[in-house]
Design a protein around this nucleic acid. Structure first.
Lengths: 249, 249
DNA sequence: TATAGCCTATGATCCAGATCAAGAAACTAT
DNA sequence: ATAGTTTCTTGATCTGGATCATAGGCTATA
């Protein structure tokens, strides 16, 4: 496939960057969403050196398991991951979905053990940041530490919002809130806010929102009847965002 | 009250330290639970200088309000605080209870706005850490940054556990889990793991666990009938901790 | 290109916990 | 003390969403 002419569309370039595990931070399309934001270029080069870029994870493959030794933080490079925590009786809660540029493993720092299970929802790849090395670097680069702190704070804040959702919202409020959160994150990544693919199953959505699969199915059908969305398998279009926002509360 | 003889019981000393807003970190009984842990003594002195020790907050008084400018992190010195986040329609979720040595405001870092409301549940006091100054200090003291990061990570991990609780547990599992979490935190602070005072109302507990007040009342009564606990107003004794642990799942 | 094992949709039934109701107890302020 | 307010308890009823049941659709691997 020697298609190295100079009229390659931008989209192909992006796709190439995200899938090529040799691309450096400087050239990465996720730069403005990611850890290096705000670093000076020589600092960035140093950071770049310690990052391990993974090959692809296939759907269902595990990035790490709970209770195992914490060695690295991960940033999603392409695809989607989910994290789950398990109760002793086998029940599991999906604690989050992670898109390109988002961190996985931040909750593992304090006990040097991963606190959750992380697995790919589709073919995906990550940038691996060995934590020890990252800390050494951080000692000389306060800006890096600050970025990490800010990231953690953001995730914490998001989780407080999820607690409000889980504790106080009705099924339809939960789903509407979830859909708009996805929408916002796709938009931040340069994709359509209205049309996207659900990389997670109905079951994962239900679990994450503290509902039953059947409830999600019924709500999707109802939202469609009410012309709020159009849904077809994994493709969804948000038709009436204003109304969805109203439903969120 | 010139009772400065040298046979004052230890407990009085502790009480004095926690209530005297001039006590320095070096002499604080919370030292081993708090931010300064692991700092060298000259670093500790520097940190000590930037800390503002508050007068008492009375029950119900606000430490900060959501959406206001983030200036400081707080560490509880004495008493208890709760944090809440509000949905646009007035519903509120109690996102956490905070005991001595615990941080409040960590979720405000990323947007420089407090993300929640914090108020005292009883007469309480805090150490205030002006964030800007703290960051300046952090530039020279990597150990301090690391401590902060670890704290954030711990809270994040706790919140993931709460998501499991809110999303997947039954009412009795929720309450048992909550009681054991309180027990553990009292124990870490040198108090009895079995007998303690509930500084929060039934309403606050219910809200935090995503239940109705009536459900909490009934469960307390039932747990008492089953000889798992003895409860009398705000005083509670955990009688059968093993069984409570089993109930948690 | 077949087949086993998912995932999804929809109807019927059920139940844990919410909501409603009404006193009793515990604070608070005068 | 005393009235007013809030918090707590307990009973009666109701309901949102779970669970059970069924059938059709998808997709992964041989």
């Amino acid at each position: 496939m020697a298609s190295s002419n100079n009229v390659t569309p931008l989209f192909n370039d992006l796709a190439k960057l995200e899938n090529d595990h040799r691309v450096v931070c400087q050239d990465c399309s996720l730069y403005r969403l990611c850890l290096p934001l705000g670093l000076h270029s020589n600092d960035l080069e140093q950071l770049d050196k310690i990052i391990k870029r993974s090959q692809n994870f296939k759907r269902g493959h595990s990035l790490f398991a709970a209770e195992t030794e914490f060695k690295s933080l991960f940033v999603v490079r392409s695809g989607t991951f989910k994290t789950t925590v398990a109760a002793s009786n086998g029940r599991e809660q999906v604690t989050g979905f992670y898109f390109p540029g988002e961190f996985i493993g931040l909750d593992a720092i304090h006990e040097s053990l991963y606190q959750s299970n992380a697995r790919a929802l589709e073919t995906s790849s990550v940038c691996e940041l060995p934590y020890e090395t990252l800390q050494e670097l951080g000692q000389q680069m306060p800006q890096l530490q600050l970025q990490l702190l800010t990231r953690l704070s953001k995730e914490l804040s998001g989780d407080k919002g999820l607690m409000l959702l889980l504790g106080k919202k009705s099924a339809e409020e939960k789903l509407a809130t979830f859909l708009l959160s996805l929408s916002k994150r796709f938009q931040e990544r340069g994709f359509s806010a209205a049309d996207f693919q659900l990389s997670m199953s109905r079951g994962d959505i239900a679990n994450h929102l503290g509902l039953a699969v059947e409830t999600i199915s019924r709500l999707f059908s109802r939202f469609q009847e009410e012309s709020l969305i159009v849904i077809n398998g994994k493709s969804i279009s948000l038709i009436d965002m204003d109304e969805l926002k109203k439903i969120c509360g």
